[in-house]
Amino acid sequence: MTRAIGLEQIIAQKVLTLSREQQQQVLHFVEFLQLKSPTVEFLHHDGTRMSALEAAGDLDLVGCVDSGPGDLSTNSEGLGHF
């Protein structure tokens, strides 16, 4: 009987055959790959992407600050210059 082996199991088996130093290099490479890709992605139940605003969940706080620039993305002076 042939049993399907998942990619994760194949990787784990191959890593176990490496020296401790090589395993450390694999770990560093995996961490490097994780840094290159988004760490968290929030999705709706139907699989579509969720905006940061939706992911924050507390829509009552949006626009609750009376002072400061209206849009920080257009504040040419940078943060901290309210």
Rank of each mutant, 00 (worst) to 15 (best):
H28Q: 15
E54D: 15
V62T: 08
P38Q: 08
H44W: 09
A52K: 07
A52Q: 05
Q9E: 15
A12M: 06
D66C: 10
Q22W: 02
L61F: 11
I5K: 13
E41P: 00
Q34M: 12
R3K: 12
Q23F: 01
H28I: 12
F32T: 05
D58I: 08
L43G: 02
D66W: 10
Q25R: 14
G6P: 06
L16P: 01
V26H: 01
D60K: 07
G6D: 07
A12L: 11
F29I: 04
D46Y: 03
S19I: 02
L35K: 11
D46V: 05
Q13C: 11
E8Q: 12
T39R: 12
H45T: 13
D58F: 06
G6A: 13
A12N: 07
Q9G: 13
A52V: 10
G47M: 00
A12K: 08
E54H: 04
I10A: 09
G6Y: 04
Q23K: 09
Q13F: 12
V15N: 06
G57P: 00
E54T: 10
S19W: 03
I10M: 13
A56K: 03
E21A: 13
G57I: 02
D46H: 06
L16A: 15
V30K: 02
G6C: 05
M50W: 00
T17R: 09
L18C: 05
I5T: 13
A56W: 04
L35I: 02
R49P: 07
Q22G: 05
S19C: 01
G47C: 00
D66M: 13
F29G: 02
S37W: 09
L27G: 01
L7H: 08
T17S: 11
F42H: 11
L59N: 08
L35Q: 13
D58K: 05
V40L: 07
V26S: 00
L18T: 00
V15S: 05
L61V: 14
L53T: 15
L59M: 10
T39Q: 14
S19P: 01
E54V: 05
A56P: 00
K36T: 09
I11G: 03
L18A: 07
T39Y: 06
A52L: 14
V40F: 04
V62A: 11
I11W: 04
R3A: 13
E21T: 09
E41N: 08
S51E: 02
G47N: 03
A52M: 05
Q24L: 10
E54N: 07
R49T: 08
S51Q: 02
H28G: 07
V15T: 13
F29L: 11
G63P: 01
Q25K: 11
S51M: 00
V30G: 02
R49C: 01
D66V: 15
T17L: 10
G63S: 04
V65Y: 14
E21M: 04
L59A: 12
V65S: 15
V15L: 09
E31D: 12
T17M: 07
T39V: 07
A4K: 11
K36A: 11
G6L: 08
H44Q: 10
I5Y: 06
D46W: 03
R3F: 09
I11Y: 09
V26W: 04
T48L: 04
V30P: 00
R49D: 02
Q23W: 01
A56S: 07
R20V: 06
V62R: 08
T2R: 10
S51C: 03
